[in-house]
Design a protein around this nucleic acid. Structure first.
Lengths: 203, 203
DNA sequence: GGATTTACTAACCGGACGGTCGGTAGAATT
DNA sequence: AATTCTACCGACCGTCCGGTTAGTAAATCC
């Protein structure tokens, strides 16, 4: 006896998760629009009709993937960092956790940044709202540092976007078999961000 | 008597440039794959057949746009910055010029980062090679700072990618009518980058 | 052991897509 | 005045796409 009859987004069958994972990979490689449903079906050893047994539509599949990715962001980056009292440590935790999530191989997270415009307006708004919560969380951390006199004289909105840029660019250039380890990269991004944001001797 | 019979990429007719500009806007809004040739044709008051009088294929159109964008990057960011002797000033020039190019309204430059994978392998390689020259130019500047003892102990490859991330993320969030002016943003990105990269008192 | 449900497939559909073709009005050339 | 060239258009083509339908073998339930 497994989960309920009406599967919420978290309680899907193994096969469905398999499909999401594979679809995320292909969307990541080829882009959402350039990917055909038949090719996804073939990648999970189904016919297109068989694939449609599990999903409602192509957009529905994308939505499921993006929701899954958003949940990963929330449980693996936001929630563990929220409890950290010291804002500098909190910031470092966000950077490290987000960087690891972006590079560990699950492609769903990259679709979260690259293919959201392909969602229908209602779904897109849902995701954008949740992203906004994350953005505010990071900016609030910078604001907290500012109030404590530990931040350089820099606009926190621009600084937050700048940091996101550094992080979200990561999956586009990081190669697991490359010269740089993920720990080295996290070190570099953290050093640059903290060095550029914090007043000297505050960290 | 205008240019030659075989128009090089720089010597196109006014109408062709009009088409490239409009197409770049639509590609930017909807993505390359999601954009139909008929919709581009309609946007420039042509039928699809009329549009094909000017271009060879959809990919050819993308290639022309991306080439045009690459030329802008070279003439407006790389070349003016190359002559600057002091590496810190050179770095600041790169950041400011690139940021302005990315936000001044010409959408071709954003297609240069978002739609290169839609090019055919040969064309894609051409563009990637030219991007590589830019990357090396920036990293060489950081290496020069390092040799002069003016750079913190940070990996210059990771630092260059991190900077590119901050810059290339800009067009995704910058709003010309928003609260932050482009000068404020350039200030912030420059401050963070320099503060995070340079040893104190070196700039 | 019959009925129902699960997990599919082969075949198909309407439509949109990139691209082409034959033609043509009008300007420029000879 | 006849010819050629430029800048298009209407109609069309084959292909592929997202999605559907009718059916079915095997497992599950009663």
């Amino acid at each position: 006896m497994k989960a309920s009859k009406k599967p919420t987004i978290a309680a899907e069958s193994d096969r469905a998760i398999d499909i999401y994972t594979k679809a995320a990979e292909i969307f990541h490689e080829q882009g959402f629009d350039a990917t055909s449903m038949s090719s996804i079906a073939a990648a999970v050893d189904l016919t297109k009709a068989g694939l449609y047994y599990y999903i409602e539509s192509k957009e529905d599949l994308l939505h499921a993937i993006v929701n899954y990715a958003m949940e990963g962001l929330e449980t693996r980056v936001i929630e563990p960092s929220r409890g950290i009292a010291d804002p500098t440590e909190r910031l470092k935790s966000i950077i490290e956790r987000h960087a690891r999530l972006l590079t560990e191989g699950n492609k769903a997270i990259t679709i979260l940044t690259d293919e959201v415009e392909a969602l229908k307006p209602k779904h897109r708004k849902q995701i954008l709202d949740r992203k906004r919560v994350y953005f505010d969380f990071v900016r609030d951390t910078l604001d907290e540092l500012k109030r404590a006199g530990r931040l350089r004289d820099v606009n926190t909105t621009a600084a937050t976007f700048s940091l996101f840029g550094s992080l979200l660019w990561l999956p586009r250039w990081y190669r697991p078999d490359g010269a740089l380890t993920i720990d080295q990269i996290i070190q570099a991004i953290t050093d640059i961000a903290c060095g550029g944001l914090l007043v000297d001797g505050a960290n």
